[in-house]
């Protein structure tokens, strides 16, 4: 059983078989994570570099843990701000690091396509840990693993992604992955944050949470960035919370319990009410646990193919 490509750049175009393989493999790694010694040897001797050009504590820690638990040697390179403002280009940075004989690169960058670009200029396997508003494949995979654990299958599962769809890589990767696995996906948010022609990706568009809660099994709540307000895409956080914030009251009107997901970090009581985030229907912490297992699976499957 092998992945089709040498890299994990996104879920757009990834086959159902490949997604299933990663999720099945992640299930095996969940068992490893329950052991007293949470470390296994398959990537012994492999060197992995985490290139984080964008601040991100959780994704970085999750990847580092996954790498170390596979016994890889790990180097993390973080830089605040964008590489664009720095003297050295991304290509130079990557080539320099590769000259130090590394096997895999995990990249987080503000530019859509940065991981694709990297995969063209280095020989190492590349894993996309988020490229601008484009994709964040491991996040969507861990979301899918969490949902598969809860519902056994993703087939026909009704998932709504709520928030700033226009700028969200989490939304895109989830749409691609969930659609491929047979789920019914919708999005909900203010019209200014719903990108053009998104219906053509096969998703339904809502602007009212009241309508969403009537029909879905799952709501995946996205983090709202304050800078969207500053650029005039919505009027105020208060108004956003009132109409698009996912709260216990709004969800209470649902005919069946709705599972609540969030990629973190949460702006409590802005996009998601605190009581709901901590409720029995929230799977937010399972998402975090599954994040390590999914990343181990992706790293393992790419790492052993060399």
């Amino acid at each position: 059983m092998k992945l089709r490509g040498r890299h994990l750049l996104g879920l757009d175009g990834m086959s159902r078989e490949d997604i299933s393989l990663i999720l099945d493999t992640a299930v095996s790694f969940k068992e490893v994570l329950e052991r007293p010694i949470k470390k296994v040897p398959p990537l012994q001797g492999k060197t992995i570099v985490n290139l984080f050009f964008e601040a991100s504590t959780r994704t970085r820690i999750s990847f580092e843990l996954a790498e170390r638990r596979l016994s890889a040697d790990v180097v993390t390179f973080s830089t605040a701000g964008s590489s664009v403002s720095k003297g050295e280009t991304l290509k130079d940075t990557a080539r320099n690091i590769e000259a130090m004989k590394i096997d895999m690169v995990v990249i987080r960058h503000s530019a859509p396509g940065a991981a694709h670009f990297l995969s063209r200029v280095v020989k190492a396997n590349v894993i996309n840990a988020g490229d601008g508003g484009h994709e964040h494949p491991t996040q969507a995979l861990l979301d899918m693993l969490t949902l598969r654990e809860k519902y056994a299958t993703l087939e026909k599962l009704k998932v709504c992604i709520v928030g700033d769809i226009a700028h969200s890589r989490v939304a895109r990767s989830n749409i691609y992955g969930l659609k491929t696995m047979g789920a019914e996906v919708s999005v909900c948010g203010p019209a200014t944050l719903i990108p053009r022609d998104i219906e053509r990706l096969g998703v339904r568009v809502f602007h009212r949470l009241e309508e969403v809660v009537k029909e879905v099994d799952v709501i995946n709540v996205l983090r709202i960035q304050l800078e969207r307000q500053e650029s005039g895409l919505f009027p105020s956080l208060r108004e956003y919370h009132r109409y698009f914030g996912v709260t216990k009251e709004k969800v209470a009107k649902a005919p069946k319990p709705i599972t609540i997901m969030h990629p973190g970090p949460i702006n409590r009581d802005v996009e998601l009410s605190a009581d709901l985030a901590d409720s029995e229907h929230s799977v937010i912490l399972q998402q975090v646990t599954n994040g390590v297992a999914v990343r181990m699976a992706a790293l393992y499957l790419l790492g052993i193919s060399n």
Binding site: M1, K2, L21, D24, T25, V27, S28, F29, E31, V32, V40, P41, P42, A297, Y300, L301, G303, I304, S305, N306
Partner: peptide
């Protein structure tokens, strides 16, 4: 016991075994 992760011929095999759980 699934020993896949501990095999010494894991890397570079054309036919990768499906990783299964140790229970």
């Amino acid at each position: 016991l699934d020993i896949t992760l501990y095999r010494d011929d894991l890397r570079g095999r054309l036919d990768q075994p499906q990783l299964q759980s140790t229970q």
